[in-house]
Computed example of a mutant assay.
Amino acid sequence: MARPCKADAEHTRDKILDAAEWMFLQHGYAKTSLEMIARAGGFTRGAIYWHFTDKVSVFKAMLQRVKLPMERMFEQKIEQEANPLQALYQMCLASLLQLFEDERHYRVHAILLTRCEQVGELADLHQHNLDLHLRIKLRCEGLFRQARKLGLVAADLNEQRAALALKAYMMGLYLSILREPDELNTIDTARQLLDDYFQRLGCNVM
């Protein structure tokens, strides 16, 4: 078989991942096969194996096309902000906006959070997410600690509990957006819920 040119190969790879995205969303990870992905994209299984070794590698490549909300939060450079609470609020809001405004981002996170079990062959993905969430939690703790030192929150604020509560609150919003689209279906509603949380901390987000 002649090796395809780089542009054609990249185009085919993207189309395979597009088809995989829709199949995983419709059927879940466990019930999706490479044969189903091939049929959905109009490819042969051989075309898939040209680019990927197995279903796990297809799934992980699909995930790499987007940034997880928590991962994007971790990458932003905000430690030197004059108001760490305001910076943290903007970081959380940006991650929610992405779910509403980026269709691929929405689909991939719906798959990751509602359509697959991160056990067995995906166990390393689960560990990666645990490690990421720990880094996010530690970073949030640092921002809450900075806010306490600046007098922006109560002097007796426990930054560990505050960071854990924020992580749980954000994950709850993500899951509600993905699982209950009829109830939480606009960014305005999500923003109001986020505003409520930060206003209880004494952060003026207006």
Rank of each mutant, 00 (worst) to 15 (best):
108 V>R: 01
115 R>A: 01
206 M>A: 15
36 M>N: 09
195 D>M: 05
40 A>S: 14
198 F>Y: 07
165 A>G: 10
65 R>I: 06
99 L>N: 02
3 R>P: 01
98 Q>M: 12
8 D>Y: 14
53 T>Q: 15
54 D>N: 15
62 M>A: 07
161 R>Y: 11
39 R>E: 13
156 D>P: 07
152 L>N: 04
74 F>G: 01
142 G>D: 05
200 R>Y: 06
146 Q>S: 10
43 F>D: 03
33 S>N: 10
99 L>G: 03
194 L>C: 05
72 R>W: 04
181 P>E: 02
66 V>T: 13
82 A>G: 06
113 L>P: 01
80 Q>C: 05
29 Y>M: 06
93 L>I: 03
26 Q>C: 11
36 M>V: 06
138 L>W: 05
100 F>W: 10
143 L>G: 09
13 R>P: 15
157 L>C: 14
148 R>T: 07
142 G>N: 10
192 Q>G: 08
112 L>S: 00
184 L>S: 04
49 Y>C: 12
152 L>F: 11
78 I>Y: 01
63 L>P: 05
157 L>I: 14
201 L>E: 00
3 R>A: 14
206 M>E: 14
83 N>T: 05
124 D>Y: 12
174 Y>D: 00
12 T>F: 11
92 C>G: 00
84 P>S: 07
137 K>N: 14
43 F>L: 08
193 L>T: 01
102 D>Q: 12
36 M>Y: 03
194 L>G: 00
177 I>H: 02
122 L>G: 08
152 L>E: 02
140 C>T: 01
53 T>F: 13
130 L>F: 12
108 V>T: 09
196 D>C: 10
105 H>G: 00
26 Q>Y: 11
95 S>N: 04
97 L>D: 01
54 D>H: 09
89 Y>T: 03
188 D>Q: 13
192 Q>P: 00
45 R>M: 13
62 M>T: 04
163 A>T: 02
156 D>C: 13
141 E>F: 08
149 K>M: 15
24 F>K: 05
77 K>H: 14
28 G>V: 04
119 V>D: 12
110 A>S: 13
149 K>R: 15
56 V>C: 15
13 R>C: 15
125 L>V: 13
152 L>Q: 07
183 E>K: 12
177 I>Y: 04
46 G>T: 03
13 R>A: 15
185 N>V: 02
20 A>Q: 05
157 L>A: 08
85 L>Y: 02
39 R>A: 13
160 Q>D: 12
59 F>G: 05
88 L>A: 07
153 V>G: 03
82 A>V: 04
4 P>F: 07
63 L>T: 03
188 D>I: 05
159 E>Q: 09
47 A>I: 02
57 S>I: 11
80 Q>I: 00
51 H>L: 09
66 V>L: 07
74 F>V: 04
99 L>H: 02
57 S>H: 14
82 A>F: 02
88 L>K: 01
14 D>V: 10
203 C>N: 06
7 A>Y: 07
68 L>S: 06
151 G>Q: 08
92 C>F: 06
74 F>K: 09
206 M>S: 15
96 L>P: 08
144 F>T: 01
159 E>A: 10
177 I>D: 00
198 F>M: 08
